[in-house]
C-alpha cells in the first residue's frame, strides 16, 4: 500500500479511537466510580416521574381546549405582516418609489389578510369552548 494512504488511515484511526474514548469514556468512568447501583429508599418512589414529591394525578396524555392555539396561529398572520412591512416602512420615503410599488404593497398585505379573513369566517374570533367526543 502507498505510504501516504497508510499514514492517512493511521491518522483517521487514531482520531476515531480518540473520539470514541471522548464519547464513551466519561460514561464508563461514571459507571465505575459513582455509587449508581441503587439509591437509598424510604417510600420506594425513586422511579416516580414527577419530581416535586406529589403523586401525579391522572395521565399526562390529556386533551385540552385547542382554542388558544388558534389565537397563536392568528398571531402568526399579523406577525408576518409586521415583519415584512418594516423594510417597506424604512424604504418608503425614497423618491424612487412610485404608485406601482404602493399597489404591490397593497396586494401583498391583501394576500396576507386573507388568512385573517379565513379565520374570521371560520369563527376563530368568537371565544367558545369547542366540545369534543369522549369528554
Amino acid at each position: 500500500m502507498d505510504q501516504v494512504v497508510l499514514t492517512n488511515i493511521i491518522y483517521v484511526t487514531i482520531f476515531l479511537i480518540g473520539a470514541l474514548l471522548f464519547g464513551f469514556g466519561p460514561i464508563i468512568i461514571v459507571k465505575l466510580l459513582s455509587p449508581s447501583s441503587h439509591t437509598r429508599q424510604t417510600a420506594g418512589r425513586a422511579g416516580q416521574l414527577i419530581e416535586c414529591g406529589m403523586e401525579p394525578i391522572g395521565s399526562a396524555w390529556i386533551r385540552f381546549g385547542i382554542i388558544y392555539y388558534l389565537y397563536a396561529l392568528i398571531f402568526l398572520a399579523f406577525d408576518v405582516d409586521v415583519l415584512f412591512l418594516f423594510p417597506v416602512a424604512v424604504a418608503y420615503n425614497s423618491p424612487e418609489l412610485g404608485l406601482q410599488d404602493f399597489y404591490e404593497i397593497l396586494l401583498f398585505v391583501a394576500i396576507l389578510s386573507l388568512a385573517i379573513v379565513y379565520a374570521w369566517r371560520k369563527g376563530v374570533f368568537t371565544w367558545e369552548k369547542k366540545t369534543y367526543l369522549h369528554q
Binding site: P35, R40, G53
Partner: peptide
C-alpha cells in the same frame, strides 16, 4: 401530610446523598 412528599424527594435523590 407532607411526610410522603418529603420521603419521595429523598428517594429521588441519587447517591451519594
Amino acid at each position: 401530610k407532607l411526610e410522603l412528599a418529603v420521603k419521595t424527594l429523598y428517594d429521588q435523590m441519587p447517591e451519594p446523598k
